[in-house]
């Protein structure tokens, strides 16, 4: 997933914390090995290499992940698409066979990229593991763009998480109060690259805004922030209308340190 995970677990005995974090590390590493398309040994790299010519049978977890991706693709008007490419296709890019747990790619130029999904998927699992280990309070930060909070801050009723205004050092674009909830932020990459594609046009989305989504599930928040950023402004409310309990905000950061915040209406 090409980033780092940081976990803050206050008021937890150190041996217990170390044990929990070791388990988390193992779990996330396993997902990394499963979903990293840049790792030639990963099942996903195998799919990208050969599934255009033959059906590839998948590990149960990877298949389930791809099924979820397909559900989200349909649930976001196609704006969340793990097969998005600069040459858009008219038909389906891949076909999942639920009976045999196999995948077929429509053509050799289709590549599955779980980059916009894996962090949310892993974060969801990490939170569950922490809860099952008895952790009542903590924050998990996955590469700054996906953050999940368990319970509340030791000195407050929520975890105050600020989104940085990258156009003005030290300025805050928005503060979010997380409590048993998650936050995901999408937009232009830190490097200045517009890396998110509009799956329908194949064009890189060059929006200046950040899209921040908060809600119960780290996975849904991650998927939604990517899809909303990729979608034209006039379609964002419609996408949000399909998700109850999520709140999306567009953050227009300015060089003078101020930020215009626009809530994306939910057309439910």
């Amino acid at each position: 997933m090409h980033t780092r995970m940081e976990i803050v677990l206050p008021r937890l005995e150190e041996p217990m914390a170390q044990s929990v974090v070791r388990d988390v590390e193992q779990r996330v590493s396993k997902l990394e090995r499963l979903m990293n398309r840049f790792d030639n040994a990963s099942p996903l790299a195998m799919v990208n290499a050969v599934a255009a010519t033959q059906a590839v049978e998948l590990d149960g977890e990877l298949f389930m992940a791809l099924e979820l991706c397909e559900v989200f693709r349909r649930g976001t008007g196609g704006y969340f698409d793990v097969a998005a490419a600069e040459q858009p296709r008219s038909g389906a890019a891949y076909l999942l066979d639920g009976k045999d747990h196999t995948i077929r790619l429509a053509s050799a130029d289709v590549k599955i990229d779980l980059g916009g999904f894996a962090k949310g998927f892993a974060l969801e699992q990490v939170c569950r593991m922490l809860r099952e280990s008895g952790v009542e309070s903590g924050v998990v930060n996955f590469g700054n763009s996906s953050i999940a909070a368990l319970g509340h801050h030791p000195y407050g009723e929520w975890w105050p998480i600020g989104v940085a205004n990258r156009k003005c050092a030290g300025a805050v674009a928005g503060e979010f109060r997380l409590c048993d909830s998650a936050l995901s932020v999408s937009g232009m990459a830190e490097s200045g690259e517009y890396h998110i594609l509009n799956p329908h046009t194949g064009l890189r989305v060059a929006g200046e805004e950040l899209v921040a989504v908060e809600g119960r599930s780290a996975l849904v928040a991650e998927v939604l922030s990517t899809a909303l950023y990729a979608a034209p402004h006039n379609q964002r409310a419609e996408i949000m209308g399909q998700y109850e309990g999520y709140r999306a905000t567009e953050l227009y950061c300015r060089k003078d340190g101020t930020t215009e915040r626009r809530l994306i209406e939910n057309n439910r």
Binding site: H2, T3, R4, K119, N141, G143, N144, S145, I147, W159, P160, I161, G162, V163, A164, R166, V172, E175, F176, L183, V185, S186, G187, M188, A189, E190, S191, L210, A212
Partner: peptide
């Protein structure tokens, strides 16, 4: 407020 959220750190 802990300010670290944003687009993906790589």
């Amino acid at each position: 407020n802990s300010v670290f959220a944003g687009t993906s750190w790589a």
